[in-house]
Nucleic acid binder design. Structure first.
Ligand SMILES: [Zn+2]
Ligand SMILES: [Zn+2]
Ligand SMILES: [Zn+2]
Ligand SMILES: [Zn+2]
Lengths: 170, 170
DNA sequence: TTGCAAACACTATAACATAACATTCTACCC
DNA sequence: GGGTAGAATGTTATGTTATAGTGTTTGCAA
């Protein structure tokens, strides 16, 4: 069992191969559930996103995608991204125009994204409580909330330490 | 004195002319403070954004901008937007790729945006408490937060009522 | 008035995303 | 198997958002 879902994941050391395999399995299961096909294209796009806990732009995916010596057109990548997002397997990071593989099984809604400005690592935190608080705040103005976007930019633990160290050295 | 800053602003009826004038005055003051110029271009862009409590895309601004019979290039609009944003006079609404005039004097940081999916009206709520909560949550993972993006999509009070009414009629 | 820095004008291009339509694949019925 | 409907893909083109680069004008001060 992985540490996925714990608050300091993915900052902690973990077996990322297992991490990837779990996500792929989860994707297969999700497709089953929805009577959809986990086609080679969709799998390939998801695998590229799973390679690291960092978001990729659609055109970065195009560039890295040389499966069977083909170079797919953007439209195809965007189709796969839309499909994966509709199943909650990936998320769009609006502040980066980029896409991230979801790592919280069964919690596709209500995430808070912590985006490192230096290394681009993204952590996806459970945010249900925060969202409830925001919904209540909205409701007190008469606003009916449907979807939420919460992204925090800053420094991940490793980059924060590195910069502290560099500052101390000078 | 306007109702600006109260939780149900701008949903409530208000004298929008006063609303605009206050924002312009605030912009002039902010430029003074920073030893910057409130040039005609910058003023014109801000005025277009102030026309309604809804965000405009940069290219919408280009289209509406026929000041002195000129049609400025996008670059010029983006320069004005960057300037105004640096002074906290406008905000970028990431989920819409659009720009909104700020209506919370003195609170350029820590806003929560409520974006109506139907009429595009945007309310800007004070979100300091929420941000503190998010910072604490981030910090418990070792993440150092710098900037925050909180956008909620849904229905404003008026649109929510309208849709309820339409559903009741059928 | 001369010189400097900020702002502007203009052109081009980068970066991100979708529309439209033809073709291929897949599941299912006969 | 052969036909067929719907899903997925391949391909081309275009739409949309944002920035880079370069030269000119403007405002201000020494
Ligand atoms: Zn991992
Ligand atoms: Zn980092
Ligand atoms: Zn107003
Ligand atoms: Zn509305």
């Amino acid at each position: 069992m992985s540490d996925r879902g714990k608050p300091d994941f993915p900052y902690r050391q973990h077996d990322h191969q297992v991490c990837i395999e779990e996500c792929i399995e989860r994707a297969e299961a999700a497709c089953m559930d929805h009577n959809e096909h986990f086609t080679e294209n969709r799998r390939a796009v998801l695998e590229l996103l799973l390679a690291g806990h960092r978001p990729l732009g659609a055109y970065e995916i195009v560039e890295q995608f040389d499966w069977k010596n083909r170079r797919p057109a953007p439209a195809q990548i965007y189709r796969a991204l839309a499909f994966l997002e509709s199943l909650g397997l990936i998320h769009r990071i609006a502040s980066r125009n980029a896409y991230l593989a979801c790592n919280r099984p069964g919690h596709q809604k209500g995430a808070i994204f912590l985006v490192c400005e230096r290394c681009e690592l993204v952590a996806e935190l459970e945010g249900t409580q925060m969202l409830t608080a925001i919904d209540n705040l909205s409701a007190s103005s008469g606003f009916v909330a449907h979807t939420h976007l919460i992204e925090v930019s800053g420094l991940c633990p490793a980059c924060s330490d590195t910069l502290d160290f560099e500052r101390a050295e000078t």
